[in-house]
């Protein structure tokens, strides 16, 4: 009797989640229909965004989101792993506890504050120091870096996003590393491996699926981040693959234009971008799940 009530309640609540996701999808679909009716799937790769002429395309924003989130992950993953390894393996308690506190504090900072910091501190530093440094180093020959210009760029947004996702990836990776059985680590040590070798070749290998999922969750956070990105990315409307130029993201364009969108097709185009973002997150999570299933043989 009590058991069936319990099952009914929890079942209903679980369904609620599915229904909500379904409704979000439905609303996004209905709201964006004019855009799909006008351009079909080519809306995704059209590059022009001109509200005055009524021309809309999503590619600059998709590219901006992927470029900034991808770069954020590239920067944040090694740093986060370093923090996680330090915390589980090497740091004495006197260092560990304050460091955990600081990392968790970073996760609690509102994103608008990150945005403010980006405007007042990071953007000038990117303009004055980071971009000239990269341009002068061998990295400057990479086609993703052009001529250094103003401080509001894809790079600035990437750096902010990296800092924002470090706490997530670091704390999840730390939990993953702590779940690796002690006898794995000791097995490597007993063979005359150094602590670093045991960490690198045995513990990290054992936890690779868990670390991968931490990275996917971090990437998901970066994809959806709006405020800090909007404040630092530069909000240009053209397609660019140059990290030294101002760009735009799916979240930023919606936040910037939805309130002022005058025409129906403009609103529909913005909602369509929201739908693409929703789908992108969904696909990313599915890929993450799939790969976790494949590499987790034996590991976490």
């Amino acid at each position: 009797m009590g058991g069936s009530w319990f099952r009914l309640t929890t079942g209903a609540l679980a369904c609620l989640v599915l229904i909500t996701a379904g409704l979000i999808f439905y609303e996004l679909w209905m709201g964006s229909r004019p855009a799909w009716e006008q351009w079909g799937l080519s809306f995704i790769w059209r590059t022009e965004w001109n509200p005055v002429r009524g021309e809309f395309g999503a590619l600059p924003f998709i590219a901006g989101t992927l470029l900034t989130s991808g770069m954020a992950l590239v920067i944040a993953l090694p740093v986060s792993l370093g923090i996680a390894i330090l915390l589980t393996e090497f740091a004495p308690r006197a260092v560990r506890d304050p460091l955990i506190f600081i990392v968790e504090l970073l996760a609690a900072v509102p994103s608008v504050v990150f945005g403010l910091w980006g405007i007042f501190v990071l953007a000038p530093v990117v303009q004055g120091t980071v971009m000239p440094f990269i341009a002068g180093s061998p990295l400057g020959y990479l086609p993703i870096f052009g001529e250094p210009g103003a401080g509001y760029t894809l790079l600035t947004a990437s750096l902010i996003l990296a800092i924002m996702i470090i706490p997530i990836i670091a704390s999840l990776s730390r939990e993953v590393l702590m779940t690796v059985p002690r006898d794995q680590r000791e097995g490597a040590l007993a063979l005359g491996c150094t602590r670093w070798e045991a960490m690198r070749h045995v513990v990290l290998a054992y936890g690779r699926a868990g670390i991968f999922s931490a990275a996917v969750l971090g990437l998901g956070r970066a994809l959806g981040e709006t405020m800090a990105t909007t404040m630092t990315i530069g909000n240009s409307l053209g397609l660019t693959f140059d990290y030294f130029e101002a760009g735009n993201s799916m979240t930023a364009i919606i936040a910037n234009e939805l309130r002022e969108a005058a025409s129906e097709i403009h609103v529909a185009s913005l909602v369509a971008i929201g739908l693409i973002l929703f789908a992108l997150s969904f696909v990313l999570n599915s890929i993450g799940r799939l790969i976790i299933g494949r590499v987790s043989r034996g590991g976490v």
């Binding site: 059985p181 006898d183 794995q184 000791e186 097995g187 490597a188 040590l189 007993a190 063979l191 005359g192 491996c193 070749h201 045995v202 290998a205 054992y206 690779r208 043989r297 034996g298 590991g299």
Partner: peptide
């Protein structure tokens, strides 16, 4: 530990490695 080896209570082969790699690793 290179001179004094150890075998543990529960078998603890490295699960991400093959039989061969478990031996050649160290």
């Amino acid at each position: 530990r290179i001179r004094v080896g150890m075998v543990f209570q529960r078998p603890n082969p490295f699960p991400t490695m093959s039989i061969r790699e478990n031996i050649t690793f160290a």
